[in-house]
């Protein structure tokens, strides 16, 4: 596994929770949004095992609803537990990213 995909694996849960927090989405929309944010190398299918696990752990819940284009889609909503989990992921991330950035700063590019 490449370094990038290892890093991504650790933080993908947080990214997905954050996208769902902004507004409820269904699978295809979610993968589109992740790609728009620049995570273009997340293979689209990767999200479904993650969505299942987040559902199983009660961080999100799915609901069948008619989509904008018409047919029913399973939309995901953030639960209270999901919000709490996202809060702690973001805190952890910030505590990590600052120090790492300072360590890397000043290196000759």
């Amino acid at each position: 596994m490449s370094l990038r995909s290892q890093l991504l694996k650790g933080i993908l849960d947080g990214c997905i929770l954050a996208v769902i927090e902004k507004e409820p989405v269904y699978g295809y929309e979610l993968s589109k949004k992740l790609q728009e944010f620049g995570l273009s190398d997340v293979s689209e299918g990767t999200i479904y095992p993650v969505l299942l696990r987040l559902q199983k752990n009660g961080l999100i819940r799915g609901e069948m609803q008619p989509s904008e284009s018409g047919p029913n889609r399973k939309y995901y909503f953030l639960t209270k537990e999901g919000k709490e989990s996202l809060d702690s992921i973001v805190t952890e991330w910030k505590q990590m990213v600052g120090p790492v950035n300072s360590i890397f700063k000043g290196r000759l590019e």
């Binding site: 993968s31 689209e44 299918g45 299942l52 399973k74």
Partner: peptide, 24 residues
């Protein structure tokens, strides 16, 4: 439910010229 989600995704992708291999 997840099989339906994957199928919907594949159909959407197919319309954009993607294959199951590129998606999954």
């Amino acid at each position: 439910e997840v099989l339906m989600e994957m199928l919907d995704h594949l159909l959407d992708g197919q319309n954009e010229g993607k294959t199951a291999r590129t998606i999954f």
